[in-house]
Design a protein around this nucleic acid. Structure first.
Lengths: 192, 192
DNA sequence: TCTCTTGTCTAGCAGTGCTAGGATCGGATC
DNA sequence: GATCCGATCCTAGCACTGCTAGACAAGAGA
């Protein structure tokens, strides 16, 4: 039985390798460069091997997205927990979010821009995604203000950050005023 | 000379046909379905004809985007000019923007999501894009509040709308609370 | 040692954006 | 009216994409 166990381990290891390589390649050259051929070549297996782990390219993107969600949740929690006072926490959250998006553009795309075949905002939404939203909610819930559902407030704040992140990355917004935008957003949206 | 004139007219007409067909096809089946072959077939010419009008698919997307920018600017102005009072105007703007995004998803993508080879937020930005931003600025400038640059405020408000629009369309946000999100955004962001 | 399952690879399909080079057609010239 | 020539368009093809059928080999179990 230990033989099967070893094979199972090796398979899991290879799956991790695929996801890590896809992510690396995407961050280096963009998702368009992540072709099944290139990916297969980098992991030193043939293309069909990819399809024994994932249904297709979409699922690989989804796997990267889940990894990213976990990391983003951790980054947000780390940033907010270091601050005291609601205002400082929210500002830290906004900065951490935008920082994550800027440092990991491909992962961010996998999460919020591309189709990774994942369900969002539903019951069967994967746990990492729910948790990433929860991380935002934990901090933003306390500044939603009276009469506003924390969930709704979090969605709006998140959407604003998402808009800033994506428009900045596609050069629709200039990066210069980034900090002022964050301040304006925190100042106005939150109830302290 | 009238022969050349006629040919020039026919060429311009065909170019309009290409853009209109690309837009139609994109709205019907998404931009992925807009292949050069399908597009060529629909306009009843061969593929290379497309390349005598546009450098490539990217430029066709850009042409659709410019068309969309003009329409969006008009839609926003029409919606805001019908209202009196800053609050009503901003609410109308937000609704008109999200409505445009929902009704013309492919055009919206061409404008703000895809790469149409256009320059944004720069000197050589095409006039329709500048004007679309101006349409937002005209209305949002008056509710920016003291000490906040109208341009900066418009960017943030716009980014928020953009985030809501894109996250809703990709099912990251549920459509149910759409109206409440708009109200929250207008309530909090603007200074009335 | 032999079988048979499991895993992997080669080769190929139908599709993509884009282009080189040949055919054709129409206006201008002799 | 015949001829030329340039503009215009199409056929055919390139290198690539995601994905898969079927051949093949390696290893576990009898």
């Amino acid at each position: 039985m230990s033989v099967q166990e070893r094979k199972r381990r090796e398979r899991a290891e290879r799956e991790r390798l695929i996801v890590a390589t896809a992510r690396e390649l995407a961050e280096q050259q963009g998702w368009d460069a992540v072709t099944t051929r290139r990916l297969a070549e980098r992991i030193e297996y043939s293309q069909p091997v990819l399809y024994s782990h994932f249904r297709g390219k979409r699922e690989i993107i989804g796997a990267v997205a889940l990894q990213g969600a976990t990391e983003m949740a951790a980054a947000v929690r780390a940033a907010t927990s270091a601050e005291r006072g609601p205002r400082a926490r929210v500002t830290a959250l906004a900065r951490a979010y935008l920082d994550f998006a800027e440092r990991n553009p491909a992962v961010y795309d996998a999460l919020f821009q591309l189709d990774g075949g994942l369900a969002y905002a539903q019951e069967d939404t994967p746990e990492p995604l729910k948790d990433a939203f929860a991380a935002l909610l934990e901090c933003l819930g306390e500044v939603a203000g009276d009469g506003v559902r924390p969930g709704l407030f979090t969605e709006v704040f998140w959407a604003s950050l998402h808009g800033i992140a994506t428009l900045t990355r596609t050069k629709r917004l200039l990066p210069e005023d980034a900090e002022q935008r964050v301040e304006l957003l925190v100042d106005r949206l939150t109830v302290l």
